[in-house]
């Protein structure tokens, strides 16, 4: 059986659980409330998932880099970009021209600091990125004085408006981004090096790869994607508040894992994360449709996640 595992087969096998879950949930949703699968509703859910997908792209890069790579600072970076980004534009579309690149670069730099601490000092990624999250949150508070941002460029606000049929502009952008990043990950020299580093950092080093540089860049990409997602979020929601994206940290980890990228690194891709994000928001919206209170919804989400994990994240047995 083992002999038959082809790399491509494996990718399909990783996607399969999330695709099955999506189909099942759409069916269940439609039974519970007819009209659940209407194009408008589904595209709305996809649009919500699109914001998360952007974060998931970065999170996937970090998780593929191995060595229990995880980025717990993405939520804070997102919130920071969502709050500070638009306010830098003074509400003018033209302002995006500099504020977006500036925040992407700043995000990248924050990620590079994460990566340097992790690779150079051999610190656990979890703790470094947690602390970095607190630092970034602190910066956000410092610069905004805790006030929500008011002036948001119209261009950002248009992201959430139906564009191509029922499809939102944001979704189209994210789909393009998703495929570009998947292509970058699977085909570019950097992407292939990243897979090797994640698979086995030790062998990668012995093979002469610049492991530190490669891994540090993956953290940079993650933080940069988070900054981008911050802009998308503020556009979709229409306003920005302090800590508005906190939950995206763990949501992104969960989506990527549901999408078949393992925490142990070395395999996976960014498309799985998009599927995972869709699963999570589909679940949320079914539970919301049911009229469950927030608490029950969150609880059930946890329970469902636990069941999904049982299917795809078990560690090997001690007895061989």
């Amino acid at each position: 059986m083992l002999r038959k595992i082809n790399k491509n087969n494996e990718i399909i096998r990783n996607f399969l659980p999330s695709i099955i879950i999506i189909v099942l949930m759409l069916l269940v949703g439609n039974i519970l409330t007819p009209g659940f699968t209407s194009a408008n509703n589904v595209f709305n859910i996809i649009c919500k998932a699109s914001v998360l997908t952007i974060v998931c792209i970065g999170q996937a890069f970090v998780m593929i880099s191995g060595n229990s790579g995880i980025d717990m600072s993405v939520g804070s970076i997102m919130s920071c970009a969502a709050l500070l980004g638009p306010s830098m534009t003074q509400g003018q579309n033209i302002g995006l021209l500099w504020s977006l690149p500036i925040f992407l670069i700043l995000g990248f730099l924050v990620g590079v600091i994460n990566g340097l601490c992790i690779q150079k000092f051999r610190l656990p990624a979890l703790v470094v990125t947690l602390c970095m999250g607190i630092v970034v949150d602190g910066l956000t508070i410092g610069f905004t004085h805790g006030k929500p941002s008011l002036k948001i460029p119209d261009l950002l606000l248009e992201l959430g408006i139906p564009y191509l049929g029922r499809m939102r502009l944001l979704t189209i952008i994210v789909i393009v981004l998703l495929f570009l990043m998947e292509l970058f990950l699977q085909k570019s020299k950097y992407g292939r090096q990243l897979f090797l580093c994640g698979s086995n950092q030790n062998v990668a080093r012995l093979s002469g790869l610049r492991v530190n540089v490669i891994v540090v860049i993956s953290y940079g990409i993650s933080a940069m994607m988070a900054a981008l997602a911050g802009f998308a979020l503020v556009g979709y929601v229409g306003s920005a508040q302090l800590f508005m994206a906190d939950e995206y940290t763990m949501l992104s980890v969960a989506s990527v894992v549901i999408g078949g990228t393992s925490l142990s690194g070395g395999k996976g891709g960014v498309i799985g994360g998009a599927l995972g994000a869709f699963v999570l928001f589909l679940l949320t919206s079914i539970l919301t449709v049911l009229g469950l209170p927030d608490g029950a919804r969150i609880g059930i989400e946890g329970l469902v996640l636990l069941l999904i994990l049982m299917a795809n994240s078990r560690e090997s047995k001690l007895r061989i």
Binding site: I70, M250, D294, G299, E301, L303, L305, L306, L309
Partner: peptide
């Protein structure tokens, strides 16, 4: 059940705090 600790406890964290918020 041998599920990766960080993922398990993330899921249960959402379960527990969900119940708390529900109550």
């Amino acid at each position: 059940l041998r599920i990766t600790p960080i993922l398990t406890t993330f899921a249960t964290s959402s379960l527990f705090s969900g119940i708390a918020l529900w109550i």
